[in-house]
Computed example of a mutant assay.
Amino acid sequence: MIKDILLVIDDSVRADPIIHAACALAQRLAGTLTIEILSAGPILIPALAPMTAMYIPEAVLARDQAVRVEAVSAMVATSGANVRVVGLHDDLFMLADRTGKAGPIADLILIGAADLWEVAWLRTRIAETVVMGSGTPLLLLSSATSLAPVHHAMIGWKDTSEARRALHDLVAVITPHAKVSVVGVGRGDADTPAILESMTEVVRHLIAHGFDAAAHAVPANGQSDAEALQGFAQRNGVELLAAGAFGHSRLREVVFGGVTRALIEDPRLAVLLSR
Score class of each variant (00 low, 15 high):
Glu128Ile: 14
Val8His: 04
Leu33Cys: 13
Gly41Tyr: 02
Val83Lys: 07
Gly186Thr: 12
Gly103Asn: 12
Ala74Cys: 02
Asp266Asn: 15
Ala215Trp: 06
Ser249Thr: 15
Met51Lys: 08
Ala47Cys: 00
Ala71Tyr: 06
Asp10Thr: 07
Ala233Phe: 00
Leu269Gln: 13
Glu58Tyr: 00
Val83Asp: 08
Cys23Trp: 04
Arg84His: 10
Leu263Cys: 05
Leu240Ile: 00
His20Pro: 04
Ala114Phe: 01
Leu141Met: 06
Ala213Glu: 09
Val67Ala: 15
Gly184Thr: 10
Ala96Leu: 06
Phe246Ser: 13
Gly188Ala: 10
Pro57Phe: 01
Pro50Ala: 11
Pro219Trp: 02
Val13Ala: 14
Leu122Ile: 07
Ala243Asn: 05
Leu6Cys: 00
Asp107Gln: 12
Thr145Gln: 01
Asn221Ala: 12
Arg261Cys: 04
Leu140Asn: 00
Gly87His: 13
Asp159Val: 08
Asp266Ile: 04
Val83His: 06
Gln234Thr: 05
Met75Arg: 14
Phe232Val: 05
Pro50Trp: 09
Gly41Arg: 03
Gly133Pro: 05
Gly222Met: 08
His209Asn: 12
Gly80Arg: 10
Thr175His: 13
Arg250Cys: 10
Arg275Glu: 08
Val119His: 14
Val254Trp: 09
Gly244Asn: 09
Gln234Cys: 03
Gly100Glu: 11
His205Arg: 13
Pro149Cys: 06
Arg14His: 06
Asp64Ser: 07
Gly156Glu: 01
Gly103Ala: 12
Arg261Thr: 09
Ile207Met: 15
Thr52Ile: 10
Glu118Met: 08
Thr34Tyr: 10
Ala233Ser: 08
Ile35Thr: 10
Asp115Pro: 00
His205Pro: 06
Ala127Pro: 07
Glu70Ser: 11
Arg275Leu: 09
Thr78His: 15
Arg235Cys: 11
Arg235Gln: 15
Ala127Trp: 02
Arg187Gln: 14
Ala217Ser: 15
Ala233Val: 05
Leu33Pro: 12
Ala49Cys: 11
Ile155Arg: 02
Phe93Gly: 11
Gln65Gly: 02
Asp64Val: 01
Gly133Ser: 10
Ala215Met: 07
Met51Gln: 09
Asp107Gly: 13
Ser274Asp: 02
Ala40Gln: 06
Ile45Ser: 03
Phe232Ile: 06
Thr129Phe: 07
Asp91Ser: 09
Gln230Thr: 09
Val218Pro: 03
Ala66Met: 08
Lys179Glu: 15
Arg68Thr: 04
Val183Arg: 08
Arg14Asn: 04
Thr129Leu: 04
Arg165Gly: 06
Glu239Gln: 15
Leu229Tyr: 03
Met154Pro: 08
Ala144Trp: 00
Val119Asn: 11
Val130Met: 04
Thr160Cys: 06
Arg98Ala: 15
Val271Thr: 01
